[in-house]
Design a protein around this nucleic acid. Structure first.
Length: 322
DNA sequence: AAATCCGACAACCGCATCGGA
DNA sequence: TTCCGATGCGGTTGTCGGATT
């Protein structure tokens, strides 16, 4: 009898895509009772779903601060960097991309990044592919970011003010709030500004305060948790965003000497030993400086457009469009 | 115009971990 | 200390819509 009843209840459980009515039920219940206790929620809300399903639907789709739309080049860059460090730790990576879910990041990796690896006929976790990402994909993303920034700089609309206001109104979870106040490193560098698919209407500028207004206009990186990573020591110097200076220093993005971009095949380059270089992108001129890190000498310097042009050529030779 | 392919993403499943009794 | 339910995480599958043939 008990088994039959359980089986009958099992039969009633809904699966597959959520309907608008189910979404409304779930949102209303959470609005009244808050998140958590998912099994209780599933029983009491009238939803014929498992607690797991309710939790997933809320976290991945219904939660108000979920960000919609394509991943920005900045977000892609951060995913590549963090994945190279942590592997498939999707939830951990997601902590550093506000509004993005682990599921979304995982899907991005599987559909975009692994696709590139397949086209190149290498394993996505192989050293060769990781080096290819660092040497060619990341510069390409940086190029996109640079062009976006320059475009925004040329835009007469006061984008920054609207975005700052939007940022000030966006809630942070407890973990993120903690990260906003790293001990002993106060100052403007610890204030997060949200750019991207948020309401950029200047009319929304209500608060934000003088602290935000005093920030330098460095729109592309500010949304991400570079300084959270820096303050927590997570990157161990592998990627540091200096909010005050407005510069990004990605140690380990080994670009190698200039002749590699013209004279060598990519495989020759990847097979060569050129580790430990430092790549630095300055917010003003977008210059990359490359060279051996052992002596602290950054060597020769190229402009971003030159470098990315070379990278794009190499990517084209490989037949791997980004 | 119809059929097929393919990419993107939502959703499910199994396992691991955590925390309270 | 052990058990068990709740929750979290990562891998995988299913579905849908746009692109291509």
């Amino acid at each position: 009898m008990g088994d039959q009843q359980e089986a009958a209840e099992e039969m009633e459980l809904r699966r597959g895509p959520w309907t608008l009515e189910e979404d409304n039920l779930l949102m209303n219940y959470i609005a009244c009772h808050g998140e958590g206790r998912w099994n209780l929620l599933a029983r009491c809300s009238g939803l014929k779903r498992t607690g797991k399903s309710c939790r997933l639907r809320w976290l991945n789709y219904l939660k108000p601060d979920i960000k919609r739309g394509n991943l920005t080049p900045e977000e892609q860059l951060l995913i590549l960097e963090l994945h190279s460090k942590w592997g498939n730790r999707w939830s951990r990576i997601a902590q550093y991309l506000p509004g993005r879910t682990d599921n979304e990041i995982k899907n991005y990796w599987r559909t975009r990044v692994q696709k590139q690896a397949r086209q190149l006929k290498v394993d996505a976790n192989s050293t060769v592919f990781r080096d290819a990402v660092r040497c060619y994909w990341m510069p390409r993303l940086l190029e996109k970011m640079a062009s976006t920034t320059m475009h925004q700089a040329a835009d007469p609309l006061p984008l920054h003010h609207g975005a700052m206001a939007a940022a000030s109104s966006l809630p942070l979870n407890s973990h993120q709030q903690e990260a906003c106040v790293p001990g002993g490193t106060g100052g403007a560098g610890n204030v997060y500004i949200h750019y991207g698919p948020v309401d950029l209407s200047p009319s929304t500028s209500t608060s934000g305060g003088s602290t935000i207004a005093a920030l330098p206009p460095v729109p592309c990186f500010s949304e991400l948790r570079w300084d959270q990573l820096q303050s927590s020591g997570e990157l161990d110097g592998a990627g540091v965003f200096d909010s005050e200076m407005g510069s990004l220093d990605l140690d380990g993005l080994d670009l190698g000497p200039a002749e590699y971009y013209s004279d060598s095949t990519l495989l020759d380059y990847l097979n060569s030993s050129c580790t430990g270089s430092t790549m630095m992108m300055m917010s003003g001129g977008y210059n990359y400086s490359c060279g051996g890190a052992t002596d602290g000498d950054h060597g020769s310097t190229w402009r971003a457009d030159e470098l990315c042009q070379a990278a794009a050529i190499k990517i084209g030779e490989w037949g791997g469009g980004i």
